[in-house]
Simulated scan of single mutants.
Amino acid sequence: MSPPPVAHVRRARDLIDRCYAEPLDLEAMAVAAGYSRFHFARAFRTAYGEPPGAYLTRRRIERAQDLLRSANLTVTEICHLVGFTSLGTFSRRFSELVGRSPTAYRRDHETPSVVPGCVLMRWSAIAEKRRAADEP
């Protein structure tokens, strides 16, 4: 017996949650679900109430909020760590979803104990090497 349709869509959501910082397009998400792009987009929206691209962007912004509160990194570094390639797009989407710019958010939420940026950058490089080694 095949898994219910929501299980297929959940596999794609899990992929987004796990690999949000990597370049993910609709095709890669649909492949994870075992659907065509268009069927997947409809099924994802039905299951989660938003399109897969909006979910991916929201996950990236949520992670950026965590980093802005706790990491000693520039906004540009955070932008790239969470999967955006354009600082302008990142800042615009952040402002749309959060209601203020990344810099203003940091100013209002920064905690005194921050993770050194060099630690996060090194962790990111190690994670990238592991992903590359796992690819066939």
Rank of each mutant, 00 (worst) to 15 (best):
M1Q: 09
S2M: 11
S2I: 12
P4D: 10
P5L: 07
H8I: 00
V9A: 06
R10D: 08
R13V: 03
D14A: 07
A21F: 00
A21E: 03
P23Q: 09
A30C: 07
A33G: 09
G34T: 08
S36A: 14
R37S: 06
R42C: 05
R42P: 01
F44K: 01
R45F: 07
T46A: 15
G49L: 06
T57I: 13
T57W: 00
R58D: 07
R63D: 00
A64M: 05
A64C: 04
Q65H: 06
L67W: 13
L67C: 05
L68H: 02
T76R: 13
T76C: 01
E77S: 11
I78R: 03
H80T: 11
V82L: 06
G83R: 04
L87V: 14
G88R: 08
T89R: 14
S91D: 09
S91L: 02
S95K: 15
E96K: 10
A104E: 14
R107A: 14
R107V: 13
D108Q: 15
P112E: 13
V115E: 10
C118R: 15
V119S: 07
W123A: 13
A125D: 12
I126R: 14
I126M: 09
A127D: 08
E128Y: 06
R130P: 01
P136H: 08
